[in-house]
Design a protein around this nucleic acid. Sequence first.
DNA 1: GTCCAGGATCGGA
DNA 2: TCCGATCATGGA
Length: 283
Amino acid sequence: MKITYENNNTKISGAKNFDLGQTFECGQCFRFDKDSDGLYKGTAFGKTITAGQDGEGITLYGVGEREFESLWRGYFDLDRDYAGIIKALSFDERVSVAASSGAGGIRILNQDGWETLCSFIVSQNNNIPRIKKIIASLCSLLGEETGGGFYSFPSAEAVAGAGIEGLAPIRSGFRAKYIIDAAESVASGKVKLDGLSLLPYDEAKAELMKIKGVGDKVSDCALLFGFGFRGAFPKDVWIKRTLEKYYGADFSPSEYFGEHAGIAQQYLFYYERSILKKIAGDN
DNA sequence: GTCCAGGATCGGA
DNA sequence: TCCGATCATGGA
């Protein structure tokens, strides 16, 4: 992998297993959209960027060395050896097939913990287009403008301050009370997100599940996408179907796949949900 | 109009 | 412990 800086852009070339589209569209992140020109635009950690990919590599527009090193290198998980992880996980036939059939360019983003927690509370019993819409609405309602009509994700304090009535415009339905409980718990310190990534998995999970509306799956998503727990294995409806179909009952993904179970999960999820669905749709 | 969505909670077997 | 109904809304 080679990083070069020119004209206030950062160019990443020779990065193995890094596909911008797969990474932004595999369901881990709700804040990036593809523009009509094929570029992805979105906001993370209060910074809005435009990113594109061509045969030469990935370009982050308007990002200089300082910002790249302090934010985006970590965000895109660039210091993790995905090729090696895929090799290590390919003892499993399903993961091997998924990784070599259009899911191998996914990188697990290191997103903001609070944003990820809140986003996956919104995701429950919901569909991705609507999840994105609700989150965008929450950000424009309570976040701060970051330029070009983009907004930062609001702090827990800002969300708690709005109260349940204040959230009415985002149309989040029965999830509003859960969002408020999460915001109040985090703002008050009842649930501590600082240092959560350093706790053992079980303790970190129990901490998040103190929040109403945060159960087994939502907490695993937050841990995997927002707190660096690559061994967390979120079990949504698609993955449950996959597990039943190929791995049988009483199967323990975390023991079977090990420390990178979450990455295996994401390959399986994206492959089953997007790639097989697309193939089915083409027939 | 119907079905269902990256689930969690609650009450009752 | 397990199962089903329910939750609020709108995308497909």
